[in-house]
Design a protein around this nucleic acid. Structure first.
Lengths: 184, 184
DNA sequence: AGAATCATGTAAGGGGTTACATGATTCG
DNA sequence: CGAATCATGTAACCCCTTACATGATTCT
């Protein structure tokens, strides 16, 4: 049953199914809402169907066909226990690289809100720790390059600046937390 | 001859060939140098050969085989007039999206240094203008979302913060310019 | 009556990675 | 004498995008 392992953003889709079973087209409409995740994650309809199929193949989702006369039957997905566990883990785990922040961390945050402020705080705290490690790394590399290799120095300085901005934003995030979070 | 159009990072490779003809393996070694571009752009050997082939197909490079007994002959590439023009344009053109900054802008800067401080200044100035536009956009979107849609607000605030960090870094860059630039 | 929506996908292609292939030569 | 280097690539696979396919139903 577990044919393959799910890549990280794939798991985000589990958030749509979490709580109530949903069919693909239904998720597609929610993803198209400009007030929702669309500002962060733009996924094509065909890609959505492909990812759902893969999550089923992986064993995180099961589907049942709901016929409805005339139209093609809805393929309604629900979480398996493995899927539920994977989602609960995903939503608490910070991203490992700065390049995942923009897309994946914001998506985690989007779903974490529904789980209440405790989860949001956990996520933000852990991400902050991770960012601090990155920052130290880049600062170390800056020193290493120093004036002798000015280009390398600038490269690491750039990255350090981006991470600093992430940290500042995480602080702002933590302040807004009460507004962001759903039911505690 | 012009079979296809070159994607943007592809053009970066022209920088290696600019000035003196080079063969693939030679470029590969330079790309592997940790003190050089490797800190920014990591490209696999097979991918390098594929890109060079594509640039030739596009008409930006021509190659001549240099036999050398025993070993496979070196395929030495040189810029065509179109390639030269494309490179000169590429090196002056700022990147259009924030997501291209980390990889592509830094690569432009890497090569621009060799062209002298005037080119570097041009590039930085234009990129600064572009970033300022992005920043205004994001700030506008922040206001639009305001307190009513806190998640959207945070998303745009995140992006604004990243762009602010880019602008700060560009200023630092401009200051270091004399160290960075090659012969004026 | 014609357009958009509902609901599922498949096919083709672009771009990248990993792994493999080849065969001489120089280094330790 | 074995390992790394020189120098070129090809093949298989993954992921995503764009475009196309289907066919009823509801909106204007």
């Amino acid at each position: 049953m577990p044919g393959r392992s799910a890549s990280s953003l794939e798991l985000a889709l589990l958030g749509f199914v979490y709580g109530e079973p949903r069919h693909g087209y239904d998720i597609y409409r929610e993803l198209s809402d400009p007030e929702g995740l669309r500002a962060v994650w733009r996924i094509k309809q065909s890609q959505l169907y492909a990812l759902l199929a893969r999550l089923e193949e992986t064993g995180y989702l099961t589907s049942t066909l709901m016929p409805q006369g005339g139209r093609p039957p809805r393929k309604v997905f629900r979480l398996t226990p493995e899927g539920e566990a994977a989602y609960q883990d995903w939503i608490r785990r910070p991203v490992e690289h700065g390049r995942q922040f923009r897309l994946e961390f914001l998506t985690k945050l989007f779903f974490a809100r529904r789980e209440g402020s405790a989860i949001v705080e956990t996520l933000i705290d852990r991400q902050r720790s991770a960012c601090q490690v990155w920052l130290e790394e880049q600062r170390g590399l800056m020193d290493e390059a120093s004036a002798a290799r000015p280009f390398l120095h600038l490269v690491h300085r750039y990255r350090a600046g981006q991470v600093e901005a992430m940290l500042g934003w995480l602080d702002a995030c933590a302040d807004t937390i009460t507004h962001l979070a759903g039911p505690a």
